[in-house]
């Protein structure tokens, strides 16, 4: 196989197939699922908990630049943001801005 083509085949198989196959399974399962069933509530709870896992990993075990920052800062920033979000009647933008303000100030003062 020509040299330039291999990464694309790699991305197609190890990336797209490994991702889309779960989406297709979700369609197969979802087509049989009744919106008002107990099973549907469980699926929704599990999907939400999986996304919660993704969120928590990005905060607690980040990759890239943030990996060098203190975990206390990241968890603290997320906590402050979420508290502001709840305290302001679920104003998403205020919660997000509060979290980012705490984080960027913390990064600045820890010499980033």
């Amino acid at each position: 196989m020509s040299e330039w083509l291999w990464p694309y085949v790699f991305i197609l198989v190890a990336g797209a197939l490994a991702t889309d196959m779960w989406r297709w399974m979700g369609v197969l399962a979802g087509r049989r699922l009744d919106e008002n069933s107990e099973l549907f509530i469980w699926v929704k709870a599990t999907a939400t908990a999986l996304v919660a896992g993704v969120i928590a990993k990005q905060i607690i075990y980040p990759s890239g630049v943030l990996a060098a920052s203190a975990v206390v800062l990241r968890v603290g920033a997320a906590g402050v943001g979420f508290a502001v979000f709840l305290a302001t009647g679920k104003r998403m933008i205020l919660g997000i801005l509060a979290a980012l303000a705490v984080l960027s100030a913390g990064l600045y003062f820890s010499g980033f």
Binding site: G26, V27, A29, L33, D34, F40, V43, T46, A47, V51
Partner: peptide, 12 residues
Amino acid sequence: VRLAPMVAALVP
């Protein structure tokens, strides 16, 4: 894997 239950929750 998470995409499977996410899609299954959206489809209905």
